[in-house]
């Protein structure tokens, strides 16, 4: 078989990591299967649902469409890195208070994506929020409460 393991040195949620991953393995699988961070979810494996959204070097990406090999030397942030010793991230709190999740499978992706927005644009319009989050599918909520939760954080921000 034409493949090798690739040695990857990276920072995930501000922790240094070093591991070997097969050359064809996605970042999603490396996070879930090798690093053991299963908060990032699989929904489609073809970039259409956003459940696997993580942040790489300040940009949100679908981790199913990134090879683990490509993140050597990068900074990765996942949902597991959002809460801190001070407690939940404001977005996580708002999602709970606004009941912005039902089954919750889309939630990690939405949280990481929404954080990516608010980190750069603290006061987006409703349209901008909906546009930014269009790469994340939710089948349970109709998005209404998700958008409200993000708006809540941006107005408090």
């Amino acid at each position: 078989m034409a493949n090798t393991n690739i040695h990857i040195t990276t920072t995930i949620n501000e922790q240094p990591y070093e591991f070997l991953a097969p050359s064809y393995m996605s970042l999603l699988d490396a996070l879930r299967e090798i690093v053991g961070l299963t908060g990032t979810k699989e929904g489609c494996l073809d970039g259409n649902c956003g459940a696997c959204t993580v942040n790489v070097d300040g940009r949100i990406v679908d981790s199913c469409l990134v090879l683990a090999a490509e993140i050597d030397g990068c900074k990765v942030e996942t949902v597991e890195g959002m809460a801190s010793s001070e407690g939940l991230h404001p977005l996580q709190k708002a999602f709970l208070e606004e009941a912005a999740l039902q089954c919750g499978i889309c939630t990690p992706g939405f949280l990481v994506a929404a954080k990516g927005l608010l980190d750069n644009e603290p006061n987006p319009s409703e349209h901008r929020i909906r546009h930014w989050l269009a790469g994340n599918l939710c089948r349970c909520t109709g998005y209404d409460k998700i958008v409200k939760a993000v708006q809540k954080v941006s107005s408090e921000g």
């Binding site: 908060g39 949902v79 597991e80 939940l88 996580q92 999602f95 999740l101 919750g104 939630t107 949280l111």
Partner: peptide, 8 residues
């Protein structure tokens, strides 16, 4: 909720 927003 807590487990679901933290990815746990």
């Amino acid at each position: 909720g807590f487990d679901k927003v933290t990815g746990r």
